[in-house]
Amino acid sequence: MGQYGVLVDITKCIGCRGCQVACKNWNDLPATKTTFTASRTNPPQMNFNNVTLVNFHTIEKGDKVQWRAVKMQCFHCLEPICFEACFVHAYKKTPEGAVVYFNPEICTGCRYCQLACPFLNIQLKWDEVFSRVRKCDMCYDRLVRGLKPACVATCPTGALKFGERDALLKEARERIAKNPDKYVDHIFGEKEVGGTSWLYISDVPFEELGFRTDVMHESIPKYTWKYISKAPILAVGLPILFAAFYVYTKRRAENEDGGH
């Protein structure tokens, strides 16, 4: 079985925010007070009770100004840095592809996962004393029962499509190939940070839609691991080296003392 993923076709999204509501329903998240801003994005920021959010962007296309709605949530990296960064193993990369914060009990609340996430998609419950984080878990409890994530199941226009990542990637390529004038030739999530389970295609360049397109195309854990794996050698080697220095220079210092 391959890893699952979701393909988001931004051209098909009408910005109904049904996915936001479905996410709340399934995960039993309380309503939050909405605020009026210049954008239709509401609430204006992702937070602990809104781990998915439809962001609205105004785009200038020729002489026309248009809206684009972009559903945001955890992208479920193939090699997630939040999992690597957690020093108690509170995260899990499941074989189904979902990255799950599965053991909040042992979390210390160091928030390194939040800092490290290249897409800033992990949220903390700030108004609680022993606050912990929440992130989209691709409705893992639904996945294991053979159901689609709640947001996908509720999407009325087919802007969200659930399936195996490889198949979705193929489909995304086909859609772009069929309509090269419409789509930007870029599947966001194909290569970004080594690949993500959520894939996006769009008719507007991704950097205009609030995507971080400047992220590296290799997986970040590859770099952190390259560094951390050297530690054991140093931990054993350095004290031995220092001890050798210690013995040698001490003998020399004592000889000098005896000499005069």
Partner: peptide, 10 residues
């Protein structure tokens, strides 16, 4: 819990 993959662990 030995989160050895994390630099923070070290």
């Amino acid at each position: 819990y030995w989160g050895y993959t994390s630099i923070l662990f070290e």
